[in-house]
Design a protein around this nucleic acid. Sequence first.
DNA 1: CCAGAAGGATCGTCCGTCGTACCTTTGCCG
DNA 2: CGGCAAAGGTACGACGGACGATCCTTCTGG
Lengths: 236, 236
Amino acid sequence: MERRAAVATVFEPVQAPTTFEETVDRLGTAIRLGLLVPGQRLPPERELADQLGISRSTLRQAITTLVQSGHLQSIRGRGGGTFVVERPPLAEGPSGPLPEDWREVIDLRVAVELGAVVLAAERCDEDDLAHMASFVEQMTDPGVFAAYRRADVGFHLAVAEASRAPRLISAMTDVQREITELIAHIAHPPQVLSHANTEHERLVEALRRRDAGRAVSHMRRHVEGTEHILAGLRPG
Amino acid sequence: MERRAAVATVFEPVQAPTTFEETVDRLGTAIRLGLLVPGQRLPPERELADQLGISRSTLRQAITTLVQSGHLQSIRGRGGGTFVVERPPLAEGPSGPLPEDWREVIDLRVAVELGAVVLAAERCDEDDLAHMASFVEQMTDPGVFAAYRRADVGFHLAVAEASRAPRLISAMTDVQREITELIAHIAHPPQVLSHANTEHERLVEALRRRDAGRAVSHMRRHVEGTEHILAGLRPG
DNA sequence: CCAGAAGGATCGTCCGTCGTACCTTTGCCG
DNA sequence: CGGCAAAGGTACGACGGACGATCCTTCTGG
């Protein structure tokens, strides 16, 4: 009875993702989220393997996979290298129904976003705010959904960067990947997107005033919006 | 220049903890945090291996390690089993100086605690509050530090449980383990502990009123307290 | 035109994980 | 009292992932 939930997590499956999978995931996600931009050149294999702390063999397996899936492109010879393709494949359409555990993802997102926004309110500078604002502007015209989505991810990552907390940046990357997968399951009418962007705007305003309280409640509502849409409800 | 911090995290080392290590960590942490209480019996090896999704061989390696480190005790024969030892070894004293990245741990903690407290404000029931309150009471007399510390961990885990978010519970467990390691580096005068517990009390009060705003700011200050102590400062 | 910088390919080795089968201890129950 | 059942303890073989080392191939810049 007592401490039931916490004890249960102790005995949950301990998954052991292989280095290869981890690497594919890391690079693939970075590309799909637009963190690595089209045309960008990755460090040479030998060097990158060193940075990632893995062997070149394993890194090459990952790269080969990403080449075959159309995310990367390899060019041989001097001056060659590994490049992000010009038009990376979008996240593939929804595979199957909405997963059972989607609320868990949203709950985790609440934590990451709130943590980021509070720390950002304390630490952000003008550059950070400008960075966020530029993404807000990109989202003013919710024309192509893919473009909107990438700007959205960019915005939230910018908040995380403003928090100056590396582990939050990393967590935000993971969460945004999961959210992106969830979001692929549902429609997004322009009016919803435009409303969401209004919230982005107010959030930036709160951060500018270093008003953590307002920032938190704006962010909470913002995330709640996604939750309601996924639940098939309308806020209010 | 642009998006520097986020891109950097992409190329950071991809650590591949082995299943064995993960398991030792999972169980060892649960014991040290008091999540698995002394005398408690673990499920039979065959069953536990199944729950954890690992082979019995690997699980046994982990158990053997924990037996040798004095956390577990195995008893053969019918009615036997694997038990948590009566007096598990405390977290060993500080090994070396305070790690460089201690602020990153605190930053992550901010996120986990704030997320937990916000969701708890929305979802907690009387049982949850009672659960928290019991830990607060255990901390009223900051006599033995180890006892205080365990109650403290229990309190924060209780908040996470009240959030009804499994992944936050898991994250809280990890964070508390790291915090416990950091805290072993510094002294804690009784007055500081008693002040911290006052904050716990106010936090519960805010949750009872479902006042998320207050709960957030209390929690933020509470975590800040730890940060200041680690930094060798006094708040205020 | 060639040296050097990149990706491409192919080994053998090592080690962690798994599965399976079997042994040993010990308490309970008929 | 004797055997069955439930637990931990042991052993071993198969498999696969990760690694490191070596060499090849391609191409460009000087």
